[in-house]
Structure formats: C-alpha cells, structure tokens
C-alpha cells in the first residue's frame, strides 16, 4: 500500500522535474538554512554553471526523503543519533550555524539591556514566573524598571529546529524542564500562544505588550525586536553577536558525537552564546549515484571555502576553519563510491 502510493507520487514528481533539472544537485530538508543555501546556490551556479535544487520542506521531511533516496542530500536542524546513522548508512556533518535569541516587548527596555539566565528563562516558559517584576528577574536586572505586567509567552506552533535547540538548552539548564517538558522539534508547551514560523513569533512579540519569545538572530534584527543578553555556562553575561555564536562553535567538542551531532546549546567558554544552533547535511556513505553525491560534496567544499561572507551577510555563522578541515577528512575516509574510492580528493 505505502510502496504503491509512494511510487505513484514519485513517478509523477520525477516526470515533472526530470527534464528541467537533470544536472542539478538535489536536496531537501530544514527551512532554517534555506535562505543561505539559496544564496550559495545562486552564486555557485554563476561560478560553475551547476545548479542546486533545494526544497525547504522541513527537517523531518528531509530525513524522510534522503532515506527514501529521492534526493542526493538531506538537511536537518536536529542531528540523527549514531545508531540511526549506522542503520541507514548515512554520513552527517554540520554546514552552517545560527543563534537563537530571546526577544521581549516591554516599554522602556532597550535591545540588549535586559539580562536573563537559563533557569529563569525555563521558569518563564513553564509559567512559573508570571510577571515581569518577579524577584528572579529583578535580581538579574537590579537597575531596570520592570513593570508588574503579566508575561505572555510566545512559542513556535510548527515543528522546527529552532524549538529543538531552544528546548534542548532549557532542558540542559533546568532539570525541571527536562522532566516536565523535554526537547524535540515540537514540545507540549505548558503556557503561551503558538505562532507559525520565526516571522510569526516575531510578529506576535512585536504586537503584544509584555510578551517574550525566541527567534533566529536574523529575525530579531530585521524586525527590530528587543533581544536580551544571556548568562552563559561560564557565568558571564554575553550579548548575541556573530562572535559569541562562533565562540560557542569553537569551544564545542565536535568529535564527541557521531556525525558531528553536537548540539551547541550551553557550550563552555567565556564568550560563548548559550543558544547557538547548527544545521546538518545527510548524504549516503556509499551512494547509489556516486557522481551526484560527488557533485554535492563539491558544492559543500565550495560553500565552506567561499560562502562565509555570504553567510554573515544573512546573519548566519560560518563553521570554524578547524572544524571544516576535520569534516573534509571525514568525507575522504567515509564517503566512497562502489569501488571504495573516496569521492573527494
């Protein structure tokens, strides 16, 4: 039944797409990195003539499509486990990073002037801290004028990698969050209203006095929202900047997880932003179409080498050079064609 329907759907899609995009690299998955993948694809096409067809259908969809082998690579905001990677024969590596920032809507509070720490943020999102003049917030912000206004929590309604990383961080700093809520691409929110997409959360926070939400850094900047500072694992107050995101990536122990599946939340280091997030690429270690995977890896090599500036323009954070060197070694040793020859030099 399932196979039958999949086949029919697949053949329709193949018939529709095949002639136009025969030479393009095909990928599907996460929506969070879509803007930068699109920008890279555009520049890469101008430089090499090779196109990229990336469908931003969501991480779950990307994982399903790569497992069904309908695309050359999948993209996911949540890393697959080592067991899952082994079972499916997939290689996994991080492509680009971003930062998640808490945003608030409070009269008289300027961007970057409010300080929040992880446990307090968890309590707000659990509904335990109900007003802005709560003792915990006052203690963190002795000089700020906090109103006795009710806190309106705004969260993502759609499943997303942003939620995965945000909830992972809260679970890491708050045992109560870990047992009561946990982390996934969507969770059972104890309080608050759900809005669709980063733009939905940004819009709801902008419209609702006394609200707090979490968005990708770029959305906080573009919508001129009041982002907060955070207290990181080292106990230092940090502002959300590209340097702080990169510090988190540089201090992370990337090799501790199979397929570089390290969640960048709550990393050590004095300058590390606690809610940094990476997004991953999935390709087969022994792809059926080795030539297509080879083309995809060429594109990723190019993006690591030349895509950094473009990423920063869109408020993403490029992978640190040291990690990229490791990833390219990993490709050479793991991703091979049918004869066991590495696909990259």
């Amino acid at each position: 039944m399932k196979h039958w329907t999949t086949w029919v759907a697949a053949s329709f899609i193949a018939a529709a797409l095949a002639p136009a995009q025969a030479a393009d690299i095909s990928g599907a998955g996460a929506t969070f990195p879509y803007p930068i993948y699109a920008k890279w694809a555009d520049a890469y096409k101008k430089e090499t003539g090779n196109g990229l067809n990336y469908q931003s259908i969501g991480s779950g969809g990307g994982i399903k499509q790569i497992k069904a082998k309908t695309v050359t690579f999948g993209a996911s905001d949540a890393p697959l486990s080592g067991k899952d990677l082994d079972e499916s024969g997939l290689a996994q590596f991080p492509m680009v990073m971003g930062g998640i920032v808490p945003v608030v809507n409070l009269d008289g509070i300027a961007p970057g002037s409010l300080v929040i720490d992880g446990p307090t943020l968890a309590k707000i999102f659990m509904g335990e801290i109900k007003t802005w003049d709560d003792a915990a917030l006052k203690k963190l912000n002795p000089s700020a004028k906090l109103p006795s206004q009710a806190i309106v929590v705004v969260h993502r309604s759609d499943g997303s990698g942003t939620t995965y990383n945000f909830a992972y961080y809260l679970a890491d700093v708050s045992p109560e969050w870990k047992t009561k809520v946990g982390f996934n691409t969507s969770v059972e929110w104890p309080v608050g209203i759900g809005a669709k997409g980063n733009e939905g959360v940004a819009n709801n926070v902008a419209n609702t006095k006394g609200s707090v939400g979490y968005v990708e850094y770029a959305y906080a900047l573009q919508n001129k929202l009041t982002y907060t500072k955070m207290i990181n694992k080292a106990g230092k107050t940090v502002a959300p900047t590209a340097e702080a995101f990169q510090a988190a990536a540089a201090n992370a122990d990337w090799k501790s997880q199979p397929g570089y599946g390290v969640i960048l939340a709550n990393q050590p280091g004095e300058n590390s932003w606690p809610m940094t997030a990476a997004t991953w690429i999935l390709v087969y270690k022994k792809p059926a179409d080795a030539a297509a995977t080879g083309e995809a890896l060429k594109f990723f090599t190019w993006a690591y080498a030349k895509g950094g500036k473009m990423a920063q323009e869109l408020d993403y954070v490029p992978m640190p050079a040291k990690v990229v060197t490791d990833i390219e070694k990993y490709w050479a040793s793991e991703i091979k064609d049918a004869n066991g020859k590495p696909l990259t030099n």
């Binding site: 309604s157 691409t185 759900g194």
Partner: peptide, 30 residues
C-alpha cells in the same frame, strides 16, 4: 488561533484545530 494544545474555558484563550495541528506539525514530525 494561537496553536496551543489546551482546552480552555475562555474563548479568548489560544487553542488549536485538527487541520491547524496537521499543517503545523506534519513537516517536522519525526
């Protein structure tokens, strides 16, 4: 609608519907 999986006595509170839940969560449902 506010997309909250809760039943509230108040009609001003956020809620969810069947189709909204599917549209929101299907893409990332792993």
């Amino acid at each position: 609608i506010g997309n909250a999986h809760r039943i509230s006595g108040s009609i001003l509170a956020p809620g969810t519907t069947i189709s909204a839940t599917i549209a929101n969560e299907f893409t990332e449902a792993v």
